[in-house]
Design a protein around this nucleic acid. Structure first.
Length: 270
DNA sequence: CTCCAGGGGTTCC
DNA sequence: GGAACCCATGGA
């Protein structure tokens, strides 16, 4: 029996911009709605009036979704700060409805390990296969479920050399060497170093996990495109107005750059 | 055929 | 510390 939940006070959140800006690989558009898999539950989301309507079996409660969509953040204030930079302001104006989600920890960790030197359709496919093959009822598998496997078991994913990285991450998570609760108690820099003990997790993947799962908005995923754009747009680093919100600024920047790849390839000298 | 995709490990200097 | 090169896979 399907449940329904209306999230109010969603401000200027745009599902299209939020799901399409490259931070999640688990939502697909169906008409004017989006269908995603979150915590093993298939969810349909659509914007309605002044809120977001969620539908699905066994929906999580409003508190969970409030956290998932970062509705506890004051994005009007964040935009006001970041708009002090003309260039960041341009990126925000292009997609003001982006909100940085807080996604499930283990799933985010494996997803961004899989994302390395990879493209979005293939990342989506591997994550989907991982869930169908090894999760319970299509849910994203637990660390314990993956830790019990070996590389031969993962060969069906066609994930290449990342299979070994997936296993190491799962084993460290299952053993308790890497725990979300532990990371939450550390500084962003300490948490980054801890995550990088996992084979296949470098600064980029670590910061994506910190930003997209733990809500560490001061982390800063060093994407290759961002590095190129930064060198030209912000030769001295991000402006002071982005202090504490480097990750959010980066996500606006990334979406803008990816959507203007043709223009930027010339501007950035790719 | 080559090139590339939201990187990271290893091996050099 | 940084630069070069390697890594499996699939689509363009």
């Amino acid at each position: 029996m399907a449940q329904s939940l209306l999230l109010k006070n969603t401000g200027g959140l745009s599902l299209k911009e939020t799901f399409g800006c490259g931070q999640t690989f688990r939502w697909r558009q169906e008409g004017n709605a989006f269908v995603g898999v979150v915590n093993g539950q298939t969810v349909r989301a659509r914007q309605s009036g002044d809120g977001i309507r969620l539908e699905g079996d066994r929906l999580a409660d409003a508190d969970f979704w409030c956290r998932y969509f970062a509705l506890d953040m004051d994005y009007a204030a964040i935009h006001q700060k970041l708009n002090k930079s003309v260039r960041l302001g341009r990126c925000i104006a292009f997609a003001p409805g982006i909100r940085v989600l807080r996604q499930p920890f283990f799933e985010t960790l494996l997803t961004f390990i899989i994302s390395q030197n990879n493209n979005i359709p293939r990342i989506t496919g591997i994550v989907s296969q991982l869930s169908e093959q090894f999760g319970t009822d299509g849910a994203f598998p637990t660390a314990e479920q993956i830790a019990a496997l070996n590389e031969a078991d993962l060969a069906c994913l066609r994930a290449g050399w990342r299979a070994g990285y997936i296993l190491d991450a799962a084993r460290k998570a299952a053993s308790g060497e890497i725990r979300e609760e532990t990371l939450s108690g550390l500084s962003t820099d300490e948490a980054r170093q801890t995550l990088m003990r996992i084979r296949g997790v470098g600064p980029k993947v670590a910061d994506c996990v910190l930003l997209f799962s733990l809500g560490r908005w001061d982390s800063f995923p060093q994407d290759v495109w961002i590095r190129r754009a930064m060198a030209q747009w912000f030769p001295k680093g991000l402006p002071k107005c982005a202090r504490g919100f480097e990750g959010i600024a980066q996500q606006y920047l990334f979406h803008y750059i990816r959507s203007h790849a043709g223009d930027l390839s010339r501007a950035v000298g790719k």
